[in-house]
């Protein structure tokens, strides 16, 4: 495993910790899209069907369990925890995420590595992850100003994607047989979605000002 990949996994983990910290410390999920969180839970459940069939490393298995449990816990908290539930910006979080699930599943039926149950669900999870951030970005755009922890959550998620791209470039040049076009192209699309957010994030960082997204 190269340094970019490790750094990518760690920033991914940090983003989840920042989100859990925000929910736990402030007992609030304002600014967080439940739809995006539900999509991530579906992404991890669909992708890690291989948890019991293909063993890669202890690191891999532990991370998979952490991602599944944390994403399910966040959804549970936002739906069931009394105080957290109250702070949910329901009227701002109106993106129709079921369409994304349907479209990604149809696309996975058409484009996959191999037509097997696991491979189709793996491709589906890759496509869905690429677009899962959209409801979150829409919510931030609508609410305009973004609190610190929410801004950092999205920043770390974006950093994770950017580091994965560096990881693929590194692997492309160092590994004899590197072919994972589904993951790479989806990853590029996913990272591109963050471009606008990153622009305003760096602007606010440079000016030492609160992060504001223009409507």
């Amino acid at each position: 495993m190269n340094a970019f990949r490790l750094a990518g996994d760690i920033t991914h983990l940090i983003s989840i910790l920042v989100l859990l910290l925000k929910i736990y410390a402030t007992k609030s999920c304002s600014g967080i899209s439940l739809k995006t969180q539900e999509l991530y839970a579906v992404v991890f459940l669909a992708r890690y069907l291989d948890l019991f069939t293909d063993f890669i490393s202890v690191y891999n298995s532990v991370m998979k369990v952490v991602f599944i449990l944390s994403s399910v816990a966040i959804v549970w908290c936002m739906r069931r925890h009394r105080a957290v539930k109250r702070s949910y910006d329901k009227e701002l979080d109106t993106f129709r995420h079921y369409y994304l699930v349907g479209a990604c599943f149809v696309f996975a039926l058409l484009v996959h590595e191999k037509f097997t149950f696991q491979e189709v669900f793996w491709a589906f999870s890759i496509y869905l992850e690429a677009v899962a951030i959209i409801p979150q970005l829409v919510l931030l755009q609508r609410s305009g100003n973004v609190d610190n922890l929410t801004g950092q959550y999205v920043f770390f998620l974006g950093a994770y994607r950017a580091l994965y791209i560096l990881n693929w470039i590194y692997r492309y040049f160092t590994e004899a047989k590197f072919s994972r076009w589904i993951a790479c192209i989806s990853g590029l699309v996913q990272t591109a979605l963050y471009a606008d957010f990153f622009y305003y994030y760096f602007l606010s960082w440079k000016n030492n000002a609160k992060l504001n997204l223009p409507a």
Partner: peptide, 10 residues
């Protein structure tokens, strides 16, 4: 046939 990529990434 084509070798299916091992999904060693998260």
């Amino acid at each position: 046939g084509r070798v299916v990529t091992e999904h060693d990434e998260l």
